[in-house]
């Protein structure tokens, strides 16, 4: 049974399972609720600056703020579409990673190893410049393909860890009730997995939102590129990039709080034992 996800875990040892994936923003903890928490300082500080700067000094801050919303749309489109495909790829690659079928397992593992071993920036260059002409990919689609494929590999590891964290007895109980393996996956294992992996997936979403700034080099007019366009015509580098940085900060902090709240809510609906 080597390689089976349900083979070497008993139900007693896994109730302390947590998945730690770094490289996101910090997900706020519940007990950090004080007014002066790091989150409050950064979030409301950034918002205050974004409100006060245009009021106190409309030129250039108000101009910058009115110039960048197009980029915000592009940033969100790339992020949301990429996270959608990354989740799909991650689910199947994650299932592949725990598959007992050797070739499927090998393919999924090689995919994860290769992708995680190459920096995202290099992957973006590779898909846009090296493969782009062959695949006829425009900037935005190349960006989405590259981000999805890259984040899919990280998602795969989250799905794998999440599914392996479900005690083996859950699958056995489902099988003993006459369910097929795939039905047991759909009805029993994956719903429980989602509860475990939601925080790391939220973290990946935030990381992807940040990394989406890399696509500005692929002729995608995202938030960062709009800021750069403004800066290069007005030479207001300090002001432009300050606003861009603050907008990114507000977004990532907002989503990290959202993820924390979702996690808290899920915690009440049936813990994984």
């Amino acid at each position: 049974m080597k390689g089976s996800p349900f083979s070497d875990r008993n139900s007693k040892t896994s109730d302390k399972t947590t998945i730690n994936v770094t490289d996101g923003t910090l997900i706020p903890l519940k007990d950090e609720g004080s007014l002066l928490s790091a989150w409050n300082i950064s979030f409301f500080g950034a918002i205050a600056l974004l409100v006060l700067l245009p009021i106190l000094s409309p030129d250039p801050y108000l101009h910058i703020l009115s110039f960048v919303p197009d980029g915000l749309v592009a940033t969100f489109s790339v992020t949301l579409i990429s996270i959608f495909f990354a989740l799909l790829i991650g689910l199947f690659a994650g299932l592949g990673r725990i598959s007992q079928n050797r070739s499927i397992n090998r393919i999924a593992t090689v995919y994860v190893e290769i992708i995680r071993g190459i920096p995202l920036l290099v992957q973006l260059f590779y898909i846009y410049y090296a493969l782009g002409p062959l695949l006829r990919l425009e900037g935005p689609s190349a960006a989405i393909v590259a981000m999805s494929v890259c984040y899919g590999a990280y998602m795969a590891e989250i799905f794998r860890a999440g599914m392996q964290a479900i005690p083996r007895g859950q699958m056995e109980a489902a099988l003993a009730l006459g369910m097929s393996r795939s039905m047991a996956m759909r009805k029993i294992i994956i719903p429980q997995t989602i509860r475990i992996i939601l925080p790391p997936i939220g973290n990946e979403f935030i990381a992807l939102l940040k990394d989406s700034s890399l696509v500005s080099i692929l002729a995608v007019s995202d938030l960062l590129r709009r800021g750069r366009e403004y800066a290069s015509t007005t030479f207001r580098y300090f002001e432009s990039y300050t606003v861009i940085a603050l907008i990114y900060l507000v977004m990532t902090l907002f989503f990290s709080r959202l993820v924390a709240m979702m996690e808290e809510k899920l915690r009440h609906r049936g813990k994984v034992h």
Binding site: N10, S11, E172, A173, I188
Partner: peptide
């Protein structure tokens, strides 16, 4: 089948 660790579906 009834298991030692119950194996109820927690969700």
């Amino acid at each position: 089948m009834v298991f030692q660790s119950f194996n109820l579906f927690p969700h």
